[in-house]
Amino acid sequence: MTKKTTYNFLIITILITFFAVFNGFIYTSNENENPVKLTEQAMHGQRLWQENNCWSCHQTYGLGGYLGPDLTNIYSAENKGPSYIKAFLNSGVKAMPKFNFSEEEKNALVTYLKFIDSTGYYPNYKAKFKSNGWVELEYKNEK
């Protein structure tokens, strides 16, 4: 190996070490999340969310496809909530497909959306802007 190659390997090794530690932190950190764990029913909803590609038209925290609205806080939004969500699943308004979910499946999806709602706000209307370009988010159930 040339000197330069050794030198490059050294830098890569350092970066990878940092990366590994960083990953460790990301994979194990759970803070600021209430409630912490999805229930069995919510996980069922999550599965339906994936299998039916809700994410390809909807976003949570602004992430997803953009044909439909964001659903992060739909559960707790004024004039919306569980029965509104269920109504939408049956109706097939505009581009939204008409789904034939059983009552149990609809409940599972609603529960999943309820859990998402409990993790935070999007849009985060009460965020604070700092002069260095940073944004301090408002967390839900701040301790």
Binding site: L15, F18, F19, F22, S29, N32, E33, P123, W134, K140
Partner: peptide, 27 residues
């Protein structure tokens, strides 16, 4: 190396708005 650093540590700009721990987004 700068590109590699970005690949490893720059991704959280997609999640600035997700209530993760602030340091993740700060990095």
């Amino acid at each position: 190396f700068l590109g590699l650093t970005n690949l490893m540590f720059g991704w959280a700009h997609h999640t600035y708005i997700v209530p993760t721990l602030p340091w993740i987004r700060f990095v």
